[in-house]
């Protein structure tokens, strides 16, 4: 696996990831997460009291907000918010806290490509650090096909300007099932399958990143997990 990665061209690598846990004091869990130059802050609060109109007797109500850097959320942000909510609803073990509310807030700080995937990963990390019950964690990967027909994994802003098709996949950590597919543009089914395999492999790296950083944060860093392969590159 490691060797294969080294052989891969620069296009098929994830950008460097980094995160900082609980940087905000007024919520149950928060994370500042970056992939390349794209930065988001995600924060969770829960379980808390809910309004009666949202009350659900057999599970908790999930509130999810995505906020752009400036101004009010527009259609684009609403779509992103809906995607995050869909994935979170699948992953959240809502039955454990009926009649309560879980709230997830994602704040964009800088958008330099692959914002959807970043927001999803950040919200997953925030849920984990906030200690909200989940069936599984998840990782999202963004990938594009550029005009030359090359596949670019986790593109930045300049690479995204020349795209023919763009894909966002989210996988769960237990069985590797697909939780979300977002595609845009034209592509062949064979290309789609290739990209899915590529993204699945990349998601393993992201899970490894979660694991090592959470272990670090909780002071149980073992030697193997102390440095991720990503940070060496």
């Amino acid at each position: 696996m490691e060797k294969q990665k080294d052989e891969k061209s620069g296009n098929e690598k994830l950008r460097q990831m980094s995160c900082e846990f609980n940087s905000l004091s007024r919520c149950d869990g928060s994370v500042m997460y970056s992939q390349g130059a794209t930065i988001v802050i995600a924060a969770v609060i829960g379980p808390v009291e809910t309004k009666t109109q949202n009350l659900c007797i057999d599970g908790s109500y999930l509130e999810c907000n995505y906020r752009p850097k400036a101004g009010l959320p527009q259609v684009k942000e609403r779509i992103r918010e809906a995607a995050i909510r869909d994935v979170l609803e699948l992953a959240l073990l809502s039955e454990s806290y009926p009649r309560s509310k879980m709230s997830v807030q994602v704040q964009e700080l800088e958008d330099r490509g692959s914002m959807d995937a970043c927001a999803l990963n950040a919200s997953c990390l925030a849920m984990l650090i906030g200690g909200l019950p989940m069936k599984y964690s998840f990782a999202a990967v963004h990938c594009i096909i550029n005009e030359k027909g090359e596949i670019v994994l986790d593109p930045d802003l300049s690479e995204m300007q020349h795209q023919r098709a763009s894909f966002t996949f989210a996988f769960d950590s237990v069985e590797g099932n697909l939780l979300l597919i977002q595609t845009k543009g034209s592509f062949k089914i064979a290309e789609f399958n290739d990209i899915e395999c590529l993204c699945r492999a990349a998601s393993a790296q992201i899970f490894e990143f979660y694991r090592s950083h959470l272990a670090n944060y909780h002071g149980r860093a073992s030697k193997e997990t102390a440095t991720t392969p990503m940070e060496e590159t």
Binding site: L24, R26, C27, S30, I41, A42, A43, I45, V48, R67, S103, Q105, Q107
Partner: peptide
């Protein structure tokens, strides 16, 4: 001030 700090 609707952001992450003013949830409740």
């Amino acid at each position: 001030i609707d952001g992450v700090s003013f949830l409740d």
